[in-house]
Nucleic acid binder design. Structure first.
Lengths: 330, 330
DNA sequence: CTGAAAGCGCTAACAA
DNA sequence: TTGTTAGCGCTTTCAG
């Protein structure tokens, strides 16, 4: 039960060969019931655990998948990861979570280092060539790369923002601003496009001052609040590219003496846990994060375990608007 | 540059032995400059990456540490993990993040499976014997186990709550309630004790209705708000065992038409990012999360790489009160 | 400073 | 159903 029992120790105690121990543990069906019991007893007695380095090396697979997240502090990701864990657990796979914002060389070792058999990538800012170089199946979640043919799961961001703009327009808002995400980010671009499309569709005009810069963070939302408040004839409704920036915006407005939704209506995007508990509760575009994680993980697991080919395009899961207290009739 | 170059391929291209390639990569000093260049060129040309399964097996170490977190959705943990990453990166170690809430058997394989050399444990609810069975160095962060002699990094929770109670008392509050954490949790217990101690120290009495049940979550805070609001002569100030529960409490009060801090003063514990942006901004006990992560990681890395023995007790890092807008004079 | 050779602990063929 | 036999790809003595 002590330091480190190896498979040979178990074999000796059970009175069988190491191959039989190995089989009893990973392919219980291919071993006699009696033998299996003997082995399991020996395992318990010796406290044996397989050494995965040895197993991975020999079997050329790690029985693990890696989830690459750009920013663990972003609460948006945690719910996704939770459902990935569920699916992976059910399939007998270990989940490793890693930061995709690592410096140069290490970024290239994912997959190739033999530590995981597949990757769930939640970061759309990586170089497509780097990703291709990983040499293991990759499924994108939420974000995506420019590279064509990559499997992914996410929502229709253009349509999502359309919901938000439509809601504000229906409430009588004519001047609707957009608090964007970081430049170059695929989500920012799509959501920005959704704003343009939806404004046109509603017959509304976008004025220069209606474009507010942001980067998804609360701080950027707070900064945008200052810009917005200092603008003459500023918009009466603001659609934000993320919940966090929306919360930052409302919070800073409050400090400036401007109330939401009395002085300004604000819509977020994501529906993170805090949004429902904010004061006022945030009207936002809900993203089915659990479904993202589950579907992406299922795709990857099927590819890994049953050789099911990965799709060559994104799977789109619809978002919907959750109307709460941060928006009001103009 | 293709599928999978092995060390032998690099050796052939460079015209040296595999042993030399290995040395050139991990012990550059013990190899001639010219040879090293040849090898590095061959590595670049072949696109070689070491197979860590093979390396880990042979060298009997994984060059990785595991961070075990009970709940990734809790934003409290992310800042801690970020600084762990920094320290580990600097030491050339990989960080693996895993969920400590996994079911039975898998819980026993951490450390013993050869996938990591040490563990940072952020969950105080695990069985001490299970942890001991991991067979690798473990450092607790924030929470701790009953087992004596375990190294850990955290704050003085009793003192922290004392700060909160003292603040409310100084503001003239006489009836101060405590919204607790989950029963049996070490943090809950310590913070509950801090409440009892501080109330006594301030000469204040704890009435039965001043004890509000919670479990650190926003929802539990919201439930407590109902209980509190329905109580006659309810407390004028509430100290909460976590920021999330404090936010839930304030939010639900607001829905009940009760304003913070006008109708009730609320103090949180943790100082998560959202607290500063809540309306009102939350007065709370700040926990130095980055320092927790950094110190714990440094302890572990020193033990792993330089054989520095781990301390046999917790390292305490002081918390401090951040006064914001959720508390007011009675 | 470099090469040859021997495994790390395990699983996958291949036999029996 | 079980055992025997080879390695998986790498690092590490041990020589030279």
């Amino acid at each position: 039960m002590e330091t480190k029992a190896r498979i040979a120790d178990v074999a000796r105690v059970a009175g069988v060969s190491t191959a039989t121990v190995s089989r009893a543990l990973s392919l219980p069906d291919r071993v006699g019931a009696e033998t299996r019991d003997k082995v399991l007893r020996a395992v318990a007695q010796t406290g044996y655990r397989v050494n995965s380095a040895a197993r991975d090396l020999r079997s050329r697979r790690a029985r693990a998948i890696t989830v690459l997240v750009p920013n663990l502090a972003n609460t948006f990701f945690s719910r996704i990861i939770a459902s990935v864990q569920e699916v992976a657990d059910a399939a007998g796979l270990t989940v490793q979570i890693s930061d995709s914002m690592v410096e140069g060389p290490r970024l290239h070792t994912f997959g190739r280092d033999g530590r995981s058999d597949g990757i769930l990538l939640l970061d759309g800012t990586l170089d497509a060539q780097t990703v291709a170089g990983w040499g293991v199946p990759v499924v994108m979640v939420c974000e995506w790369l420019d590279a064509p043919g990559m499997p992914g799961v996410g929502t229709d961001n253009v349509a999502g923002i359309g919901l938000a703009v439509g809601h504000l327009a229906a409430l009588g808002h004519r001047d609707i601003a957009f608090l964007g995400g970081p430049a170059g980010n695929v989500l920012s671009d799509a959501r920005g496009q959704g704003y343009v499309d939806a404004m046109a569709r509603s017959g509304l005009t976008i004025r220069p001052q209606d474009r507010l810069d942001g980067d998804f963070t609360m701080e950027s939302g707070a900064r945008a609040a200052h810009v917005w408040a200092a603008t003459p004839e500023s918009a009466t409704g603001v659609v934000c590219a993320s919940d966090e920036s929306a919360l930052g915006f409302i919070s800073e407005c409050d400090r400036l003496g401007l109330r939401c939704p009395d002085d300004v209506s604000v819509v977020g995007f994501d529906d993170i846990e805090f949004s429902d508990r904010f004061i006022p509760p945030l009207t936002t575009v809900h993203q089915p994060r659990a479904a993202f994680g589950r579907q992406a993980a299922e795709l990857l697991v099927a590819a890994l375990q049953n050789g099911v080919p990965l799709p060559t395009q994104r799977t789109i899961i619809a978002s919907h608007l959750v109307v709460r207290g941060s928006t009001a009739r103009r």
